[in-house]
Nucleic acid binder design. Sequence first.
DNA 1: GATTCTGAAG
DNA 2: CTTCAGAATC
Lengths: 262, 262
Amino acid sequence: MQIASWNVNSIRTRIQIVIDWLQSHPSVDLLCLQETKVIDPDFPHTPFTDLGYHTYIYGQKAYNGVALISRQPLSEVSCGFSPLVADVGDFDEQKRVISGVIDDIRIVNLYVPNGSAVGSDKYSYKLGWLEILRQYLEVLIKAQPNPKIVICGDFNVAVEDIDIHNAKKRETQVMATDLEREALQAVLQLGFKDVFRKFTPEAGHYSWWDYRSGGWKRNQGWRIDYHFATDVLYDKAIDCSIDTAPRALVQPSDHAPVILEF
Amino acid sequence: MQIASWNVNSIRTRIQIVIDWLQSHPSVDLLCLQETKVIDPDFPHTPFTDLGYHTYIYGQKAYNGVALISRQPLSEVSCGFSPLVADVGDFDEQKRVISGVIDDIRIVNLYVPNGSAVGSDKYSYKLGWLEILRQYLEVLIKAQPNPKIVICGDFNVAVEDIDIHNAKKRETQVMATDLEREALQAVLQLGFKDVFRKFTPEAGHYSWWDYRSGGWKRNQGWRIDYHFATDVLYDKAIDCSIDTAPRALVQPSDHAPVILEF
DNA sequence: GATTCTGAAG
DNA sequence: CTTCAGAATC
């Protein structure tokens, strides 16, 4: 089984690139999309359903938005943190969480807030959001012994310095500050491991290159898209890799897809 | 010699369509463009110069903008009404006039104001602009006996009822009111004739179809793009025709090119 | 209906 | 650098 994650930066702008990629990767069973940037009535279902995929979407106007594109029907699909988290505040107003079950495995597809700039309101929102995510996953992970859960998506945090092309002055850089890493670690300490690092320990592998300042040309990237898995699934994983090819196309997303295989 | 006129509705958006058209019409010596919608530093010269054309441009941000694309170098290129018209007021703020000489013929390439709605400020501006144009051409035409002048471009006026798909209620319609026609006739009475009508007297030939309400599909168009020539050139003309093919392409301009041949 | 700008966002 | 919304223009 293959589970892919891809921040497409607008599904309507990227639909042909995504469809072409799915057709050239027929072994992908589930594609988790982030930043679909479209309200549900306008989501382009037919390109996917024409290929035999089932679509599960959770979108809003202009920003955010997540989707699950699955060869098999999913069960227990849920959107947002509520009702698993009792007091979500306004953290479900932005559409960033969709989850479903395939082959007894729960997949949680996430688009973590970017955080804008260190110390900004959006930065505080990101830290608060990650704490709500921790509460949400705590409920899920404690619901059963030996849980089979994968959380994947765009986490907008580089978990280690080797996940950044240049870690100098990282503490001033959003996506790399200690506070963000600690908030994410509090999530992962529930029992999630970075599957990519099971196979690739060395530095220099990225999933996102800023459109600005020629980040892709100069391979100045960040690894901020992940699959984190519970022990039983981490142990079963046979590959986890980043497909950088779509980043080189014309009018690409700034993110590359990441594929996990059991 | 062939002189073409084409309102391209943004040269940057339409560059490939225009280049393809030039390559498939190698006998066009001079292409007069309107609505280039680009400031001079951003004009795409190289697609034209790579094909061996010389470019003369007069643009502004977002709106209006005219250009001359010529196989041979032009002489005496001038932009705007000034200094030929002494008191231009603010009529040179919008970039709508470029002129040059080729083979002893002066070409004046125009983008006449649209006028928005009858009775609006823009409608008054259009009438005032046409009077300034008359003064400008009066200077040019009186500078020599038997002048060789062609004025062409998007005039945003249908000179006769047969130039409109449906002339009912035309007096309420901008581009067809008596006041606009009279203002344009005052220009033409200096000594310019509509070359298209030398070859095609019948109704139903248009150069512009509104993007709205399926104007092109239903052939509900207007003839508002013209070549008006002085007597000696009118007599020498051997063809004047509208090439409707580019209007049928994907992402077309709402105008079709018009070609005059001597 | 199609294009452009501005401003916000990443 | 790229996207989206909303306004203005034609």
